[in-house]
Simulated assay, not measured.
Amino acid sequence: MIAPLPAAARPLVAFPTLLRGNGFAVAPEQTTAFLMAVELLGPRSIAHVRKAAVATLAPHPEQRDRFDALFDMHFLGAFAEPGEDDWAPDEEMSVQEDSGSREILIAEEINETGQAATGAEALSLRRLRTMDESETLRRFGRALPAALPRRRGYRHRAARRGPTVDLARSLKDAIRHDGEVMSLKKLRRVTRPRPILLLIDVSGSMKQRSDANLALAHAVIQAAPRAEAFTFGTRLTRVTRALRRRRREHALSEASGLVADWDGGTRIGDALLAFLAVPRFAAYARGAVVVVLSDGLERGDPSALVGAVARLAARAHGIHWLTPLASDPGYRPETEALRLIAPRLASLTDGGSTARICRHILSLGGAKAA
């Protein structure tokens, strides 16, 4: 028999229900995190309850006024005018994560996610805007297959020159010349394009670039022979299947429904560790060109990001980190995490526009196949 809910906890449990009834996306684990945060804070005043609610239920900034009004109505019994509360959430505030076991959530059909929810999540739906960069993406898609870095394959093909003798063709040619070997036919190994792996930051600090970066990922998925795309914020979500739809509008619409952590916090290290923890996902990085579209403003433990990047670099052909903060020629990594991982990156460059990202990706194929 389930024990009845304590009377003191009932208003707290009812508040997330009220938010869901008014259009807020609140996951069940966020309700649990809210109760744990209230217990952690005491609370000694209603302001502590408000802080716990903002930190764990994660209202979108555009919904903050409605969130405060519903909070005041529920806990104070009156509608408050937006702005009356003198407390505002600090964007740099650290939120203690759930002390329970952390699991990797993977759903093959709906939301292939590699990181469990944390107290800092902001779960929401979002309609992606199709950017007016069709011509840039069209040219990029046509040039990409030939511009990707290449690797030597295991197959051989006939060639005029090469290190290997094609014995079968040489013998056939000798038979046509009464057993006289006129020349030795040669073979060379076929090269094939390396796979490309896109890791796209959809946290709040990358909000201005999220739509354009997903449109770019669609162009990559459509053009490259082997490509994978993941988004990360507080979760890791595979969006490759959605972006395989040919029409960009349909692909972005489907991808927007898969991603639940739009414009929330940033846990880059945890997301990469979750990626590497799934063997099928980690295999996508083997020998691949890894392109990370993120500002690198890690909110989690820097050691997690350092360890994840080290493991990812050992598998990949190279990690290319493109950040909109690098538009300044004198840019230097500002966060501790980005400074620590910089030596392991193949490049750290400007990702502030679609045209610059396209140019950088197309420039990666200049190296000799290995």
Rank of each mutant, 00 (worst) to 15 (best):
S203W: 13
L348K: 01
P11L: 15
S353Y: 02
D132R: 14
E91W: 11
P324T: 09
G100W: 06
A316Q: 06
A168C: 08
G300Q: 12
D261V: 02
A314D: 07
L236V: 03
L305P: 00
R50E: 04
H360E: 02
P163N: 12
A271N: 00
D211C: 15
R332L: 10
S45V: 01
S303P: 02
R126Q: 08
H250N: 15
A7Q: 11
P343A: 11
L276Y: 03
A117Y: 11
P163C: 11
A107M: 11
E103L: 14
V95F: 09
T231D: 04
T164Q: 13
S347R: 09
R244H: 08
E121C: 10
L57I: 10
R209F: 15
R344V: 00
K172P: 00
G153A: 01
T32A: 15
S183C: 08
L57E: 11
S183R: 14
Q222V: 08
K207P: 00
P149S: 08
F34C: 15
A7R: 13
H177P: 09
D65S: 12
R315D: 03
S205D: 12
V278Y: 02
A120Y: 03
R245L: 11
S253F: 03
G365L: 04
V26P: 04
K185L: 14
Q115S: 05
C358H: 07
D270L: 07
A346Q: 04
M1F: 01
R332N: 06
K172F: 04
L41Q: 10
E29Q: 13
L76W: 03
A159T: 10
A159D: 08
L276F: 04
V95T: 12
S347I: 03
G318R: 09
G21T: 01
A122P: 00
L19Y: 04
H177D: 15
T323L: 12
L57K: 14
L167R: 11
S347W: 03
W321S: 10
P163M: 11
R188I: 10
A367D: 10
G141I: 02
A342M: 12
V306R: 02
T136V: 09
A53S: 04
A227I: 02
S170I: 07
G42P: 00
F281Y: 04
W87G: 14
K185C: 13
A271M: 01
L252V: 01
G179R: 06
R344D: 07
G287M: 07
R189T: 15
T266F: 14
L305F: 04
G287N: 06
L293C: 05
T240P: 03
A342N: 13
D98S: 13
E228A: 10
A174F: 13
P193C: 14
R152K: 14
A223Y: 08
G264K: 02
R139Q: 06
F140T: 01
V291H: 02
M182N: 10
R194C: 05
E91C: 13
K207F: 05
A316N: 08
R66E: 09
P59I: 05
V38A: 11
A52V: 03
F281G: 01
V220A: 11
A251H: 05
K368A: 14
D211E: 14
A369L: 06
V49S: 10
L12A: 11
A285K: 05
V26N: 09
E109V: 08
S203E: 15
D173S: 15
E108L: 15
A143Q: 04
P16L: 14
L167N: 04
E112A: 12
P4N: 07
T17K: 15
F79N: 09
S94M: 06
S134L: 08
